[in-house]
């Protein structure tokens, strides 16, 4: 089905919250998926993969300038990976068995656009450069071991963002909207009568 980019962002944010992630991480997930969709990449697949991933991992460990995440969960670990590279606390980040590499690409793309930087992402099957406007190179597969570093200069890819919305897979979108629905509170008589605005019938 076709969605607007705003629908992608808002729904992915809600889905991440519905999956139990903190609001700030959910915001980043939504923005990353917007960025992916704007570039013709499969934002719904990235989001669904990340948010359906089983709990795991144990947080990052920093040593010798390298931040390592075992059994990386990208919704939780991706923002920290990029944060520590931006702050200079780490010079490289390794994400082992990353559950949703495409979402990491989206997170990196947003960070590149906001901070005017670029990233190099290396994985077993190749490498890619991520700039604020797009990506260039081979995409990693789910479960890949990923090494992420910051490039010295921003590297524009020259890819123009697409407008007019994006196509998403029905199964992925159904999974995402089901997670988002976890935020909804069931209807009750009390909430119907006292919890909302606007009257029922008006004939003035």
């Amino acid at each position: 089905m076709r969605l607007s980019l705003n629908e992608v962002e808002v729904t992915l944010k809600k889905a991440a919250m519905g999956a139990g992630y903190a609001t700030g991480l959910a915001e980043d997930t939504g923005r990353a998926c917007f960025w992916l969709a704007e570039r013709g990449l499969d934002a719904a697949r990235a989001g669904a993969a990340a948010l359906q991933s089983p709990a795991g991992g144990g947080g990052g460990e920093l040593g010798d300038g390298c931040l390592r995440f075992a059994a990386a969960r990208v919704v939780r670990d991706g923002p920290s990976a990029l944060d520590l590279l931006l702050s200079g606390d780490a010079s490289s980040v390794e994400l082992e068995a990353a559950d949703a590499p495409l979402l990491l690409v989206g997170l990196a793309g947003v960070a590149a656009a906001v901070h005017g930087v670029a990233w190099r992402l290396v994985h077993a099957a190749g490498a890619l450069v991520i700039g604020g406007d797009g990506v260039d190179g081979a995409m990693p597969k789910p479960g890949a071991m990923i090494r992420l570093t910051r490039l010295a200069e921003a590297t524009p890819t020259g890819i123009a963002p697409q407008t007019g919305g994006c196509e998403v897979g029905d199964a992925d979108w159904a999974a995402i909207t089901a997670l988002a629905a976890r935020l909804l509170v069931p209807e009750s008589d009390a909430s119907r009568q006292a919890g909302a605005g606007a009257g029922a019938i008006d004939n003035d």
């Binding site: 992630y21 915001e27 944060d83 606390d89």
Partner: peptide
């Protein structure tokens, strides 16, 4: 300490820190 390190331990504060 950097906010990056702080938020790695406390992702629940990312929303309001921003």
């Amino acid at each position: 300490e950097s906010l990056a390190l702080f938020l790695m331990r406390h992702p629940e504060h990312r929303y309001v820190a921003r």
